[in-house]
Amino acid sequence: MLYVYDYLLFIIIIVAFIWDIKQNKIPNWLTAGSTLLGVICHLIGDGINGLLFAFFGIIAGGGVCLLLYAFKAIGAGDVKLFASIGAFTGVENVLYILMYSIVFGGIIGIFLLVSTRTNLHVLINNLIALINKKAKRNIKMINREKKIVKFPFMYAIFPAVIVSYYYILF
């Protein structure tokens, strides 16, 4: 069964998705406002227990994503968005959504790697360098410009929310 705050989260995710695709950034007013809205919804609905539910969801979603941000895997807007998702869904569901997001992000990343082959030459060059070192040979390296291929993490978050709620409901 879906509650009002679930529908609010869907609206926020759709707005964040569109905004991130168009502007390549998730605005602070959206993430901060939605985090506050999630806390208020749970505070009104369940009192202190709802406040703790939202607070621990914020810590779980934002904390884990902060580690990903430290390794430059995601942007700061994604960290704040996951804190907001945590405020709405709580610890367990925000971790499920994060797990599905990482899986979808990995699938998208593999697709981009295979389709653009930007890092394939780096792997081949490292293998050639290892062979050169061990066999004391001089095989030529592959020269190619290194392009960094990035994609908005919202491409992974959006289907992750859908899949997570599908499993919650069914």
Rank of each mutant, 00 (worst) to 15 (best):
Tyr100Gln: 05
Leu130Gln: 08
Gly109Val: 04
Ile11Met: 10
Tyr96Lys: 14
Ile26Glu: 04
Ile102Asn: 06
Phe53Glu: 01
Ser115Asp: 06
Gly75Pro: 01
Ile162Asp: 01
Ile18His: 11
Val15Gly: 11
Gly50Phe: 06
Ala129Leu: 13
Ser115Met: 10
Ile131Gly: 12
Leu51Gln: 03
Val39Cys: 09
Ser84Cys: 04
Phe158Asn: 08
Leu8Glu: 03
Ala70Lys: 14
Asn138Lys: 14
Ile40Gly: 01
Ser34Gln: 11
Ala129Trp: 07
Ala60Thr: 03
Tyr69Asp: 02
Leu36Cys: 05
Gly47Ala: 07
Phe104Pro: 01
Asp46Ala: 10
Ile157Thr: 02
Ile107His: 07
Val39His: 05
Thr118Ala: 12
Lys133Ser: 14
Lys72His: 13
Ala54Pro: 02
Phe104Ile: 11
Val103Gly: 02
Met99Phe: 15
Met154Phe: 03
Asn28Ala: 08
Ser101Ile: 03
Lys147Gly: 03
Lys147Phe: 07
Val39Leu: 13
Arg144Trp: 05
Ile85Ala: 09
Phe151Pro: 01
Ile168Pro: 01
Ser84Gln: 00
Lys80Asn: 09
Asn125Phe: 13
Asn119Glu: 04
Val4Met: 14
Ile14Pro: 07
Ile59Ala: 15
Lys72Pro: 02
Arg144His: 13
Ile139Thr: 03
Arg144Lys: 15
Gly33Asp: 00
Phe53Met: 02
Ala54Gly: 08
Tyr165Cys: 02
Ile102Leu: 12
Asn138Leu: 12
Arg117His: 12
Ile148Arg: 14
Arg144Cys: 05
Ile14Asp: 06
Leu30Asn: 09
Lys25Tyr: 14
Tyr3Glu: 14
